[in-house]
Design a protein around this nucleic acid. Structure first.
Lengths: 193, 193, 193, 193
DNA sequence: ACATACGGGACACCCCGTTTAT
DNA sequence: ATAAACGGGGTGTCCCGTATGT
């Protein structure tokens, strides 16, 4: 028996994947443990808080991962371009996975908003972190704090909504359309470099 | 024993309520039947398609209900005003219900996009119907078909996203902010009456 | 699928046997279901009250069964003889089963006295019914109510205690000794036929 | 880190208490360790024989404790008085603890008679030691060895049985009644001082 | 249209024991 | 002697669907 193993990490990663596709309630411990090839008996050890804790960590992981991606995109290009790119990437990810891989946080957020404090907190934190990246990119380009806050929220909302509609319609169109609209909007409102 | 009863209707209504708050997987037959005070032995009779059929109908019902509301709002006022109102109403509904009553379709849509044909179809239809109302209201005000399609999709996406964020953050702010932004945007792009 | 089955009864019977040997906590649903060759999925249907209800019924069954035996014994013979016989039969049952089959109620009674209302009630009722048989047999022989109550309680206590000691010592001696002592005592205190 | 501690002792003591109330199977290692405020990592060190060893020692401890009490009582008074006192004390202990604290050995004895050699041995030893105290007190008062053996076994059985019935009925009556009956019996059969 | 009985299968939880490293 | 990671296996509960009868 090794003193330490990566079972825990593997479980979180598998949970993140599964929850992204199926949501919280439809994803069982069994499935997570199987998918992660982790030993069954260790869940309680690694996650004394139960499935709730596991999924909360999975959401946090997904949130952090995507935050880094977003940050990189915002560093390289004008927000308008970055958002457009974001929409395109999301659309293709969605299409490639046969409309399975949408926003890794949204489903859990909706399922647990009213149910579980710890999970809804994790979801809120993820969303917040993404908005913050957007907001900072905008203020860096000269927008006032107020405008940046407002515009970043609209941007995030529109993308999340488009992700939802694209998944529901099994079509990339909502993401593409919203991507184009947002690009125009951001170009108009954010000063060039 | 009466030859006809409203059990079926009551079940659909209860399912709609419960699914809006908890999602599909977390809502059980037992809970629906109990909440609707309908007889247990009738589920299979009324819904041979099982829980899937029940929830699909619940989603359709919710979709139709909201479509009528939206249509009324769009008939009375400029889309910019109607959307602003929509956001405000949604925000207060959300707050009053302690962040339980968000979009009645979104949760199910995300949970079942990849799983169930019949439910995802029902969800897509609901979203489509709402977008159509928006689109028609815009063409009626003089927008081109293309612009109306694009703008209505952005509007619906943004509202749906804001509903998600408001629920996740347990705060009405996203809805309020997005409502204001959309109002400005629509005012600018849609000719007056 | 038959409209009705004897699964329920079989489960209760198996539970009675198992609980007699292992007690409540050590006896699992699995074991009961397996032993009774009943279908696994029906426990909740037949016993909505859970394992508690199952075992309570098992205890009640065991209690009623033994009550009939005791009644028959008391009808045929002087209580002194009947008690002596009782002790002998219990001793041989115990020895034959390798000290497994003691009092079918005592273990559960001790385990659950402080824990479960429904089970302790069932146990108390069983004990009470046995004492009542003894008591009535004594009053029928001319003892006063007070004496019969007191003496029947001593008798039941002594037998139960001897069953305990015999099981603990893996020896029939306690039951035999106590049987003899009780016989003498009852002969002395209860008028002949 | 101290080279020696009283953790071991504390665990045994806590186990004795818990097992008295809940029995063996329902009492978990975690509960014992928590209740004893002993370090978790020490169970295997102190009790390589596992829970079985722990509880066997707990039973032995309880047995020895009570043996001393019984011995003191028998030294001071006629067995008839001592037994009467015993019943009274047991009854009040039981009532005060809300029918939780009965015989500290009986439950484990019944649960493990057929299961575990080491535990049933410990239980048998405890019972034996108590009977020996009674027996010696009787021979000391002039009874023959045979009579003392027989009478002490009846006495112990009756008390144990009364403890069981009192716990099951949640009433002190069985202990009181049996106490009185035993007192009379012992007075009649054991010569005065 | 409703009621009841029924059953396969999965659920999340947690226990107990072991193994490592202090 | 203590701490902590770890894992195999089993716990009781409950869900969803169906089959049969009224």
């Amino acid at each position: 028996m090794p003193r330490t193993s990566d079972s825990r990490q593997r479980m979180v990663r598998s949970a993140a994947q599964l929850v992204r596709r199926q949501g919280y309630a439809a994803t069982g411990w069994r499935q997570v443990v199987t998918a992660s090839t982790a030993p069954w008996g260790s869940q309680a050890h690694h996650f004394p808080g139960g499935k709730e804790q596991l999924v909360a960590e999975a959401v946090t992981l997904s949130g952090a991962r995507f935050e880094r991606l977003l940050q990189a995109a915002m560093a390289d290009a004008h927000p308008a371009e970055a958002v457009q790119l974001w929409a395109d990437v999301a659309a293709s990810e969605l299409a490639v996975s046969d409309w399975a891989d949408g926003c890794p946080v949204a489903t859990v957020a909706l399922e647990t908003a009213h149910t579980s404090e710890v999970m809804s907190t994790a979801c809120a934190a993820a969303f917040q972190s993404w908005q913050d990246v957007l907001r900072r990119a905008m203020t860096n380009r000269g927008l006032t704090e107020a405008d940046a806050a407002s515009l970043s929220m609209l941007t995030l909302s529109a993308i999340e909504g488009a992700l939802l509609l694209s998944r529901a319609n099994r079509s990339a169109e909502p993401l593409r359309v919203v991507g184009r609209e947002l690009q125009a909007l951001l170009l108009a409102r954010i000063p060039g470099p």
